[in-house]
């Protein structure tokens, strides 16, 4: 496994959000993370990338524990987290937004990496001198994903890249996910749109109340009904 999460416990202050989470992502696969608002998906991503310090358990990426490291160290190791809500820097141009993502890279490589990332999104490449704030929500989301790609991640974590986007744009973003997988990048995807995600993912985890309640391959035949019951209760694991 490229990423291994073992018995992870995390939360905000006194509020425990994640309870004994076990999951993993292999190199080159697309894994979807599903669950309700408040189930702990975003918290899990933040804990993995080091944005949220966690308590006990362990996160191992490419053979090294990420305990105590922040997002900067994770990104250097090749684990990039694109946070929810397409939070690009609205006062700065598209090119500058990407340049910021390349902050840690050697000076000479920056522009090549930016062009590489922009190649995935011709629609924002055309607007490279526009300010981030002037982009539409969908374009901002593409920019946010492009920021992640500048680092040439081995594992890219996307938190709800489809939120607030029109169906066409959602397909556009998910198409890039497929494209990345074809090039060997592993992806951990948090999504609400179950059907669309299942179409691009290899495996799926469902979270409820901070616990993994379902882990399955996407080609298992009864997956949909198992998901439905995971969402509507009755089979939610209780202890």
């Amino acid at each position: 496994m490229l990423l291994d999460v073992n018995a992870l416990e995390a939360g905000y202050g006194k509020i425990g959000v994640l309870h004994h989470v076990e999951m993993g992502v292999a190199a080159g696969e697309v894994v979807a993370l599903l669950g309700h608002n408040g189930a702990g998906k975003t918290t899990l991503l933040r804990a993995i990338s080091g944005l949220l310090p966690w308590g006990s358990g362990d996160v191992v990426f490419a053979g090294h524990s990420l305990k105590g490291s922040g997002p900067r160290e994770s990104a250097r190791a090749g684990l990039v987290h694109v946070i929810e809500g397409h939070r690009v820097f609205t006062q700065q141009t598209v090119a500058d937004n990407l340049l910021l993502a390349a902050y840690d890279l050697p000076r000479g490589e920056r522009s090549a990496r930016i062009e590489e990332a922009l190649a995935f999104f011709p629609e924002i490449a055309a607007k490279r001198h526009d300010r981030g704030g002037s982009l539409s929500g969908g374009q901002q989301q593409m920019l946010a994903v492009a920021q992640g790609l500048v680092r040439r991640p081995r594992l890219l974590m996307l938190d709800e890249p489809s939120a607030g986007l029109s169906p066409v744009l959602v397909d556009r973003v998910l198409a890039v996910v497929s494209q990345l997988r074809a090039e060997g990048t592993a992806i951990l995807l948090v999504e609400q749109l179950v059907e669309k995600v299942l179409a691009v993912a290899d495996r799926v985890y469902a979270l409820a109340q901070g616990r993994v309640v379902l882990s399955a391959r996407c080609d298992e035949p009864d997956l949909r009904s198992r998901l439905e019951s995971a969402y509507f209760g009755s089979t939610i694991a209780r202890d």
Binding site: R72, S74, V80, I83, F89, T90, Q92
Partner: peptide
């Protein structure tokens, strides 16, 4: 400027 505008996003970006 990035940190001033959105500290969290800046951190997530690895700044």
């Amino acid at each position: 400027l990035a940190i001033a505008e959105d500290n969290f996003a800046a951190r997530a970006l690895g700044l």
